[in-house]
């Protein structure tokens, strides 16, 4: 289903897992790219958490394999030092917030600038360190406890961070904060993120692509691009949003400046040269990050990194061959402002 490239971080092959007669997880092939933000969506009991636990090496598959590809020149230390999972049903140790966050570093024997690093991780998780570091585990609200759990993982600076339903049962403010944290991790640290949620809209706002699961199987991929804004008025009654590090995107007037735009991958044209004299308002220069053949089809899904954003585009195999698209190649993404719709 997927043409493997050198950027792959997780490679799942013929994975099978069962924990009861009634439930069986089967993933013939799945590749997650380094720096990718992958969402897993589906109804309760579809296998999202099980797949995450397998990817976090918490469970051993009954058959098949999960390969965690080391970075070129990167270390091959213990898997659990490279990947960490924030469980949906998270747990805090019976000690202070500071000690909870510091635990992972202490067991690694890494005590350098411990206080500063703990404080930074708390800050990154939206918890004022002076206010929270000395608190006990029972002196936190549900949302605060979840953010402490997140801080205890952020401090480890893993290659990949897996989050199981990170916004389930927390208030709207905390959910927005978690979204900001995730977006920072993507843009600042280029961390590979795999996030499960039954809230597809929220998931779309923090991930590059989403896989859909049902009854223990991946049933499809959602490749829609989410344009998060914020939007501001531009020329000729149009609106625009900044693409960090690479210009702006022009769109029709959104319902509100904070609205999310949706761009279908099929509406994006890939060009290998800069174009002139077009009716389309948007042309962004980017680099091909990865290519995947969509299951049982002649369509190739191409991920293009442009500035701090990654776009998913769909092209036919024939077009990909003609354009000689390969990972690392510079391309231009062209799409009309009118092809952006609003959520």
């Amino acid at each position: 289903m997927i043409n493997e490239t050198t950027t792959e971080h997780f490679i799942v092959r013929d994975l099978e897992y069962a924990y009861s007669r009634n439930f069986r997880l089967q993933v013939p092939h799945l590749a997650v790219h380094r720096g990718q933000s992958l969402g897993i969506s589906g109804p309760n009991g579809c296998g999202k958490s099980t797949l995450l636990r397998l990817l976090a090496f918490l469970e051993t598959p009954r058959a098949g394999s999960i390969e965690l590809v080391p970075a070129a020149g990167g270390d091959t230390k213990r898997l659990h030092h490279r990947v960490t999972l924030l469980l949906q049903d998270h747990y805090l140790l019976k000690r202070s917030v500071f000690e909870n966050v510091a635990y992972g570093l202490r067991i690694r024997g890494d005590r350098e600038n411990l206080r500063d690093r703990v404080f930074r991780a708390l800050q990154d998780s939206g918890l004022p360190p002076e206010q929270f570091a000395g608190r006990k585990w029972y002196e936190l609200s549900g949302g605060e406890a979840r953010r402490v759990s997140l801080a205890s993982r952020l401090i480890l600076k893993p290659e990949a961070l897996l989050l199981d339903e990170p916004v389930a049962n927390i208030d709207r403010e905390s959910a927005l904060l978690v979204k900001d944290i995730i977006n920072t991790l993507k843009e600042r640290d280029n961390m590979t993120l795999i996030i499960s949620s039954h809230d597809q809209t929220w998931l779309g706002s923090v991930t590059d692509s989403i896989i859909q699961m049902r009854d223990g199987k991946i049933t499809g991929f959602l490749y829609e691009n989410t344009l998060r804004g914020p939007w501001q008025p531009d020329i000729d009654g149009l609106w625009s949003m900044e693409v960090p590090g690479n210009g702006r995107i022009i769109a029709p007037q959104p319902p509100s400046p904070g609205s999310q735009g949706i761009l279908d991958p099929a509406h994006i044209i890939i060009a290998t040269r800069e174009q002139a004299g077009m009716s389309a308002q948007n042309m962004l220069r980017g680099t091909v990050a990865s290519m995947e053949q969509v299951r049982d089809s002649d369509t190739i899904s191409v991920k293009v990194k442009t500035g701090a954003m990654t776009f998913t585009c769909s092209v036919t195999r024939h077009a990909a061959e003609n354009l000689q698209i390969i990972p690392g190649k510079t391309v231009w993404l062209i799409f009309k402002a009118s092809s952006i719709r609003w959520e």
């Binding site: 636990r53 659990h80 960490t84 998270h90 747990y91 205890s152 480890l156």
Partner: peptide, 14 residues
């Protein structure tokens, strides 16, 4: 708590 073991493993405990 049953969650303790998984939490420790995910934090990298031997």
């Amino acid at each position: 708590d049953m969650r303790l073991r998984n939490t420790l493993i995910t934090l990298g405990a031997s």
